[in-house]
Design a protein around this nucleic acid. Structure first.
Length: 130
DNA sequence: ACGGTGACATACT
DNA sequence: CAGTATGCCACCG
């Protein structure tokens, strides 16, 4: 878990925003940051997902309640971090109906023009508050 | 304690 | 058009 209130606010905001991504759609780290009003912190979006609690942790936000797999980079590719984790992310997306393609180099692509979700504001925010 | 690294993106060279 | 630099900040050694 985060160690400061700032970090916790940020992580909370990131997870909430990610939960707004409809099933079958994907968005980018940078866009999440943009929606949160901090366009210069796409990396911290990734950091939050990296430190996201495991599903069995019982935390409010965990890898089971937050569709972290719907967040990819702005080029529409899933970067290979751990062995096979990118593959798992791709499979999860396919299970939601997102068509993914793997090129000869092993890079997994998602067609953002078809599956990209890039609203100018979070639907929840547009409704009220702030 | 401190510096390098990283689920990224943009700007500059 | 490809490589380099910078911002951001939690995490790891």
């Amino acid at each position: 878990m985060p160690h400061s209130e700032e970090a916790e606010w940020w992580a909370n905001a990131v997870y909430s925003a990610v939960q707004e991504i409809p099933a079958g759609k994907v968005t980018s780290y940078g866009h999440i940051a943009l929606l949160l009003g901090e366009p210069q912190r796409p990396r911290q979006v990734g950091v939050c997902l990296k430190v996201l609690a495991p599903a069995e942790s019982g935390a409010h936000f965990n890898s089971d309640t937050v569709p972290w797999q719907r967040v990819i980079n702005s080029k529409g590719m899933i970067s290979h971090r751990g062995p096979g984790s990118a593959q798992r992310q791709a499979e999860g997306l396919e299970a939601e109906g997102v068509e993914v393609t793997t090129d000869s180099m092993g890079d997994i692509h998602v067609d953002l023009s078809r599956y990209g979700w890039f609203p100018s504001r979070l639907p929840s925010e547009g409704a009220d508050e702030e």
